[in-house]
């Protein structure tokens, strides 16, 4: 009995809600003409801005040369290592292998000439230089 009453109540509630939803759908709120005009104005402003941008975008990557290099080689750490190796290469190129003792002498504590040193020494001097 109570169950029957409960079902009747539930059906009545469902019917009420369905009717209210239907009424609300029929009387859907409409925006003002001013709203539509503002939305169209926004659309045109964004279009105009987009049309002006491509020239600047293609002229140079945003952030400049360093940002582009950083992105290309994988961050500041990799770029720092490459710069160190480059500077070391320039130094060796200008001063010759004979002068390499000036660098390695300080690092390794030896005055041995490196003019005939193996190209693949046991200790990686560039790695040590970078760590330093």
């Amino acid at each position: 009995m109570n169950w029957g009453m409960a079902m009747t109540d539930w059906n009545a509630r469902e019917h009420t809600l369905d009717d209210l939803f239907a009424a609300a759908r029929r009387a859907a709120p409409e925006p003002s003409p001013g709203f539509l005009a503002r939305v169209i104005a926004d659309a045109e402003a964004v279009q105009e801005a987009a049309e002006a941008v491509p020239v600047r975008r293609s002229a140079a990557p945003s952030g400049g040369l360093m940002a582009a290099l950083r992105g290309m080689f994988g961050g500041w750490g990799a770029l720092g290592g490459m710069l160190t190796a480059t500077v070391a290469g320039i130094w060796i190129g200008f001063s010759g292998a004979d002068q390499l003792g000036l660098v390695t002498g300080g690092l390794l504590g030896t005055t041995e000439s490196l003019g005939t040193v193996s190209l693949l020494p046991e200790g990686d001097i560039f790695a040590l230089a970078v760590q330093e």
């Binding site: 409409e30 925006p31 939305v39 169209i40 659309a43 045109e44 279009q47 987009a50 049309e51």
Partner: peptide, 23 residues
Amino acid sequence: LYGNGDRQAAQSLTLRLGPLAFR
């Protein structure tokens, strides 16, 4: 079309989707 600079597409989309967004 709008993204390619078509002005009429902006108006059509506004009339179609503006009321939906507002509602």
